[in-house]
């Protein structure tokens, strides 16, 4: 077990190097030149040179890469080029709001989707099953952009059920008052695909021999569904939910933009618009590390839930 964890951690190093290299190539070689934007309305070549020197982008690529590697090892990514805000501070302050929206969203969505999945799988093939699946499919074929525009207009403005936008200082105020409409939109968008997916997981299990055996032994249908099937279907479901976790770090930029949520997603778009490489590179590295860690965790959990799984 521990040997496995150590080996997996060891294997992360080449992947990490690959990520670093790819990010470096994409942004340092092909990304925009920030100097001109930072120079303001009137600039002359002299000032541009000066800015490039101050930012260190006039250095040879291998030195820039070296600096980047050093930053990763020390965990100090410097400061944003346009605002001077330390990257660590950006992460520390923007993560909370993103999580305030996405964590409840993930939890509610999983509970609802799993519950519905069990229900429709139970009546698989029936008219209800098909109707729910069609509604889901229609639901997920509408662009999230349309949902946001229409929901904000109808629920926040016309009906006044929610504030149009905003963000406060207290966690509860944010969660209940400001995050509820974004969460609702998130639910509408993400329940449909997940319900469809979880339904197939449940169906997979329903067809297994153990279900037939249990049924033959006279176990009640409810018990079969909620205990046997759910326990086994939970493995792919957990894997799936875990895979969604690193995405939380990046936030939901559309929701954040439209509802004035000071989260990471908005910061990412801002950083790309400003060619703010320190911020972009740091975020990429952090999320990559998180993704790998979560993947490892998922495999370990998988093992814990199902002892038959061989970790190799």
């Amino acid at each position: 077990m521990w040997a496995y964890v150590v080996r997996r951690l060891w294997q992360m190093i080449p992947t990490m190097l690959g990520v670093v290299l790819l990010v470096f190539i994409l942004f340092n070689l092909f990304g925009g030149d920030p100097a001109y934007v930072l120079a303001g309305k009137i600039s002359n070549p002299d000032q541009i040179d000066n800015i490039r020197r101050q930012l260190g982008v006039d250095q040879p690529y291998y030195i820039q890469l070296g600096i980047f590697l050093k930053q990763i090892v020390t965990g100090n990514f410097g400061a944003s080029w346009s605002t001077n805000e330390p990257v660590s501070h950006i992460l520390a302050t923007r993560l909370g709001p993103s999580m305030t929206v996405l964590v409840p969203l993930l939890i509610i969505e999983t509970i609802v989707a799993v519950g519905l999945a069990l229900a429709v799988a139970y009546v698989r093939g029936s008219l209800t099953d098909r109707a729910v699946m069609i509604v889901c499919t229609v639901g997920l074929s509408i662009s999230i952009l349309v949902y946001i525009i229409v929901f904000q207009y109808v629920f926040a403005y016309k009906l006044g059920w929610f504030p149009v936008q905003g963000w406060g200082d207290s966690f509860w105020e944010n969660l209940v008052r400001y995050a509820s409409l974004p969460i609702l939109i998130g639910l509408v968008v993400s329940i449909a695909p997940n319900l469809r997916l979880y339904r197939t997981f449940v169906l997979d299990e329903i067809n297994q021999d153990y279900v037939r055996t249990a049924r033959a032994k006279g176990v009640s249908e409810n018990r079969i569904m909620w205990v046997h099937v759910l326990r086994n279907a939970s493995i792919p479901i957990i894997t799936h939910v875990m895979a969604a976790l690193p995405g939380l770090l990046i936030g939901a930029f559309l929701l954040e933009r439209f509802f004035s949520i000071p989260g990471i997603g908005r910061e990412v778009i801002l950083a790309v618009e400003r060619s703010d490489f320190p911020v972009i590179k740091a975020l990429t590295v952090y999320v990559a590390v998180a993704t790998m860690a979560v993947n490892l965790l998922a495999d370990l959990m998988y093992k814990a839930v199902d002892p038959r799984v061989q970790l190799k």
């Binding site: 968008v189 993400s190 894997t239 799936h240 969604a244 990046i250 930029f253």
Partner: peptide, 24 residues
């Protein structure tokens, strides 16, 4: 990989369970 990031621009992941036990 579809739940929360769907709200973002979901990575079009395989909708079939990545770790699902394959039915032979």
């Amino acid at each position: 990989m579809s739940s929360a990031p769907d709200v973002i621009a979901a990575r079009p992941a395989a909708r079939t369970a990545p770790l699902r036990r394959e039915i032979p």
